[in-house]
Amino acid sequence: MKKTVLEDIITMANINFYTKIYSGFEKREATLTYTESMVVNIIDSLERPTVNELVRILGISQPNISYKINTLVAKGYVEKVQSKEDGREFILKLTDRFKAYKKIAFSSISQVIDRLEEKLSQEEMDHIYHSLDLIKEEMKNINN
């Protein structure tokens, strides 16, 4: 029972995320596909990775990831910045358009935190943030 609470939270967050992102899908210009959404969120979590780092982490071929990145560039969500150290390498930088997308996509999380802050004491919120930080660190360790 207790172990499924986090799974339930993640599932509800995912449903809310995709509902917000894909509602009115046909009406928006340059909307992200599911795969593009996944790639751009991975780029965000890696904090300005190079193209080669993304290839290595995702285990996807260079041509395949290059196609996805070029599509994200064309749609205005990602910029490719040439590395100053190695001119053959490109760093992936997210644009203001991505930041607006992320704000919409994660607005439900902000709502939940705001509601919790109204209901709980500062000490209780500190415990929640501490627990979430522990979960975040453990999640990072899974991939190492």
Score class of each variant (00 low, 15 high):
residue 72 L to P: 04
residue 127 H to L: 15
residue 55 V to E: 06
residue 74 A to T: 12
residue 128 I to N: 03
residue 28 R to L: 03
residue 65 I to Q: 01
residue 98 F to I: 09
residue 44 D to L: 13
residue 34 Y to D: 12
residue 37 S to V: 00
residue 40 V to N: 01
residue 140 K to E: 12
residue 72 L to V: 05
residue 94 L to V: 01
residue 53 E to L: 05
residue 120 L to E: 06
residue 135 I to M: 15
residue 99 K to S: 14
residue 91 I to Y: 12
residue 114 D to W: 11
residue 139 M to A: 12
residue 139 M to I: 13
residue 43 I to M: 04
residue 98 F to C: 10
residue 43 I to F: 04
residue 1 M to H: 02
residue 32 L to R: 04
residue 92 L to D: 01
residue 53 E to Q: 09
residue 75 K to P: 01
residue 20 K to G: 11
residue 49 P to S: 04
residue 5 V to N: 05
residue 87 G to Q: 13
residue 100 A to K: 14
residue 72 L to D: 04
residue 108 S to E: 14
residue 56 R to C: 05
residue 8 D to G: 10
residue 141 N to I: 00
residue 116 L to N: 00
residue 127 H to I: 15
residue 61 S to F: 00
residue 17 F to E: 04
residue 98 F to N: 08
residue 94 L to W: 00
residue 60 I to R: 04
residue 48 R to T: 07
residue 64 N to H: 09
residue 140 K to Y: 07
residue 137 E to W: 05
residue 79 E to I: 09
residue 31 T to K: 15
residue 58 L to V: 06
residue 66 S to W: 01
residue 133 D to N: 15
residue 53 E to I: 01
residue 35 T to H: 07
residue 144 N to W: 06
residue 133 D to R: 15
residue 89 E to S: 09
residue 25 F to A: 05
residue 41 N to T: 07
residue 55 V to T: 08
residue 103 K to I: 13
residue 43 I to N: 04
residue 30 A to F: 08
residue 80 K to I: 14
residue 86 D to S: 07
residue 75 K to E: 04
residue 135 I to Y: 13
residue 5 V to M: 00
residue 101 Y to Q: 05
residue 28 R to G: 02
residue 28 R to V: 02
residue 20 K to Y: 05
residue 9 I to A: 06
residue 70 N to M: 08
residue 138 E to F: 03
residue 77 Y to H: 03
residue 119 K to H: 05
residue 92 L to N: 04
residue 67 Y to L: 10
residue 114 D to M: 14
residue 97 R to F: 13
residue 1 M to C: 02
residue 132 L to S: 13
residue 56 R to F: 06
residue 62 Q to K: 11
residue 73 V to M: 05
residue 57 I to M: 10
residue 140 K to V: 11
residue 11 T to H: 08
residue 48 R to V: 08
residue 55 V to A: 04
residue 107 S to Y: 07
residue 143 N to E: 10
residue 72 L to F: 05
residue 58 L to M: 13
residue 58 L to C: 06
residue 78 V to D: 02
residue 14 N to A: 15
residue 129 Y to S: 05
residue 132 L to D: 14
residue 110 S to F: 11
residue 128 I to A: 02
residue 7 E to Q: 12
residue 14 N to P: 14
residue 89 E to T: 14
residue 88 R to A: 04
residue 26 E to D: 08
residue 96 D to N: 12
residue 131 S to L: 12
residue 84 K to W: 11
residue 45 S to K: 07
residue 144 N to H: 10
residue 13 A to D: 08
residue 112 V to G: 00
residue 47 E to R: 12
residue 107 S to I: 05
residue 41 N to E: 12
residue 97 R to N: 13
residue 92 L to T: 01
residue 116 L to Q: 02
residue 53 E to Y: 01
residue 95 T to M: 11
residue 131 S to R: 09
residue 14 N to E: 15
residue 38 M to K: 15
residue 94 L to S: 02
residue 81 V to P: 15
residue 10 I to C: 02
residue 132 L to N: 13
residue 52 N to L: 08
residue 132 L to I: 15
residue 114 D to L: 14
residue 97 R to C: 09
